[in-house]
Lab assay of single mutants.
Amino acid sequence: TTYKLIANGKTLKGETTTEAVDAETAERVFKEYAKKNGVDGEWTYDDATKTFTVTE
């Protein structure tokens, strides 16, 4: 399944996707990606669109 991340960070803005077996796995991947890019904010997830959003 393809999951999408929308990053609304102070230093990183944009979108990326990952293939994962479930939302929990995708969330781990995206949180690691955000951490590597210095983004720390509020996370939301929309199951209907398989989209995570992080906003600083």
Results as ranks from 00 to 15, higher is better:
1 T>I: 15
1 T>H: 13
1 T>Q: 13
1 T>F: 14
1 T>D: 10
1 T>R: 10
2 T>N: 05
2 T>V: 14
2 T>P: 05
2 T>I: 14
2 T>L: 14
3 Y>V: 01
3 Y>W: 05
3 Y>C: 02
3 Y>R: 00
3 Y>F: 12
3 Y>Q: 01
3 Y>S: 01
3 Y>E: 01
3 Y>G: 01
4 K>Q: 05
4 K>F: 12
4 K>P: 01
4 K>I: 12
4 K>L: 08
4 K>T: 15
5 L>I: 03
5 L>T: 01
5 L>K: 00
5 L>D: 01
5 L>W: 05
5 L>A: 02
5 L>R: 00
6 I>L: 08
6 I>D: 03
6 I>K: 07
6 I>G: 02
7 A>G: 05
7 A>I: 15
7 A>V: 15
7 A>E: 04
7 A>Q: 07
8 N>E: 09
8 N>T: 12
8 N>A: 10
8 N>P: 05
9 G>D: 04
9 G>E: 03
9 G>W: 06
9 G>P: 04
9 G>Y: 06
9 G>L: 15
9 G>F: 12
9 G>M: 12
9 G>N: 06
10 K>N: 12
10 K>C: 14
10 K>S: 14
10 K>H: 13
10 K>W: 11
10 K>A: 12
10 K>D: 10
11 T>A: 09
11 T>V: 13
11 T>C: 15
11 T>I: 12
11 T>P: 05
11 T>L: 12
11 T>E: 11
11 T>S: 11
11 T>K: 08
12 L>T: 07
12 L>Q: 07
12 L>V: 09
13 K>Y: 13
13 K>G: 07
13 K>F: 13
13 K>W: 13
13 K>H: 12
13 K>E: 07
13 K>S: 11
13 K>P: 09
13 K>N: 12
13 K>Q: 14
14 G>R: 10
14 G>L: 15
14 G>I: 15
14 G>N: 09
14 G>Y: 15
15 E>M: 09
15 E>S: 09
15 E>F: 09
15 E>G: 06
15 E>N: 06
15 E>P: 06
15 E>L: 09
16 T>F: 15
16 T>N: 05
16 T>A: 11
16 T>L: 15
16 T>S: 10
16 T>W: 15
16 T>M: 14
18 T>A: 08
18 T>M: 13
18 T>N: 03
18 T>E: 04
18 T>F: 12
18 T>S: 04
19 E>H: 14
19 E>S: 10
19 E>C: 13
19 E>M: 13
20 A>Y: 03
20 A>W: 02
20 A>T: 05
20 A>F: 05
21 V>Y: 12
21 V>N: 12
21 V>D: 12
21 V>G: 09
21 V>Q: 14
21 V>H: 12
21 V>L: 12
21 V>E: 12
21 V>C: 12
21 V>F: 12
21 V>P: 15
22 D>T: 05
22 D>H: 03
22 D>Q: 03
22 D>M: 03
22 D>S: 08
22 D>I: 02
22 D>V: 03
22 D>K: 03
22 D>A: 03
23 A>M: 13
23 A>S: 10
23 A>D: 05
23 A>G: 04
23 A>H: 10
23 A>K: 15
23 A>E: 07
23 A>P: 11
23 A>R: 15
23 A>W: 14
23 A>T: 09
23 A>N: 07
24 E>I: 13
24 E>N: 09
24 E>T: 11
24 E>V: 11
24 E>K: 11
25 T>C: 06
25 T>Q: 14
26 A>I: 02
26 A>G: 01
26 A>T: 00
26 A>H: 00
27 E>D: 04
27 E>M: 14
27 E>V: 05
27 E>G: 08
27 E>H: 12
28 R>V: 08
28 R>K: 13
28 R>N: 08
28 R>D: 05
28 R>H: 09
28 R>T: 08
28 R>C: 08
29 V>H: 14
29 V>G: 04
29 V>Y: 15
29 V>M: 10
29 V>K: 08
30 F>E: 00
30 F>L: 04
30 F>C: 02
30 F>G: 00
30 F>H: 01
30 F>T: 00
30 F>R: 00
30 F>A: 00
31 K>Q: 07
31 K>W: 06
31 K>R: 15
31 K>I: 06
32 E>S: 07
32 E>W: 06
32 E>T: 07
32 E>Q: 09
32 E>R: 05
32 E>V: 07
33 Y>G: 02
33 Y>N: 03
33 Y>M: 06
33 Y>F: 12
33 Y>W: 15
33 Y>L: 09
33 Y>K: 03
33 Y>D: 02
33 Y>A: 03
34 A>E: 01
34 A>Y: 04
34 A>D: 00
34 A>L: 10
34 A>I: 07
34 A>K: 01
34 A>W: 08
35 K>N: 10
35 K>Q: 12
35 K>I: 12
36 K>G: 07
36 K>A: 14
36 K>F: 09
36 K>D: 10
36 K>C: 09
36 K>T: 11
37 N>P: 01
37 N>I: 09
37 N>G: 04
37 N>Y: 14
37 N>R: 08
37 N>F: 13
38 G>M: 06
38 G>N: 10
38 G>K: 07
38 G>S: 06
38 G>V: 03
38 G>W: 04
38 G>Y: 06
38 G>A: 05
39 V>L: 15
39 V>Y: 11
39 V>P: 02
39 V>Q: 05
39 V>I: 14
39 V>M: 12
39 V>G: 03
39 V>A: 04
39 V>W: 15
40 D>Y: 14
40 D>I: 14
40 D>F: 14
40 D>E: 14
40 D>M: 11
40 D>C: 13
40 D>R: 12
40 D>H: 13
40 D>V: 14
41 G>C: 03
41 G>V: 03
41 G>R: 01
41 G>K: 01
41 G>P: 02
41 G>F: 03
42 E>S: 10
42 E>G: 05
42 E>L: 13
42 E>T: 14
42 E>F: 14
42 E>C: 11
43 W>S: 00
43 W>R: 00
43 W>V: 02
43 W>Y: 02
44 T>F: 12
44 T>S: 13
44 T>Q: 09
44 T>Y: 10
45 Y>K: 00
45 Y>T: 00
45 Y>E: 00
45 Y>N: 00
45 Y>H: 01
45 Y>Q: 00
45 Y>D: 00
45 Y>C: 01
45 Y>M: 01
46 D>C: 07
46 D>I: 04
46 D>L: 04
46 D>A: 04
47 D>N: 08
47 D>E: 14
47 D>C: 08
47 D>Y: 08
47 D>T: 09
47 D>V: 09
48 A>N: 11
48 A>K: 14
49 T>H: 06
49 T>D: 04
49 T>R: 06
49 T>S: 10
49 T>C: 04
49 T>V: 05
50 K>S: 05
50 K>M: 07
50 K>A: 05
50 K>Q: 10
50 K>E: 03
50 K>R: 12
50 K>Y: 08
50 K>N: 08
50 K>G: 04
51 T>F: 02
51 T>D: 01
51 T>G: 02
51 T>R: 03
51 T>H: 02
51 T>Q: 04
51 T>S: 04
51 T>C: 05
52 F>I: 01
52 F>Q: 00
52 F>G: 00
52 F>E: 00
52 F>V: 01
53 T>Q: 06
53 T>I: 08
53 T>N: 05
53 T>K: 06
53 T>R: 08
53 T>C: 08
53 T>D: 02
53 T>L: 06
53 T>A: 05
54 V>P: 00
54 V>I: 10
54 V>K: 01
54 V>E: 01
54 V>F: 13
54 V>C: 07
54 V>Y: 03
54 V>S: 01
54 V>H: 02
55 T>G: 05
55 T>A: 06
55 T>F: 09
55 T>V: 09
55 T>L: 07
56 E>A: 08
56 E>G: 05
56 E>N: 05
56 E>D: 11
56 E>Y: 08
56 E>M: 07
56 E>H: 07
56 E>R: 04
56 E>L: 07
56 E>I: 08
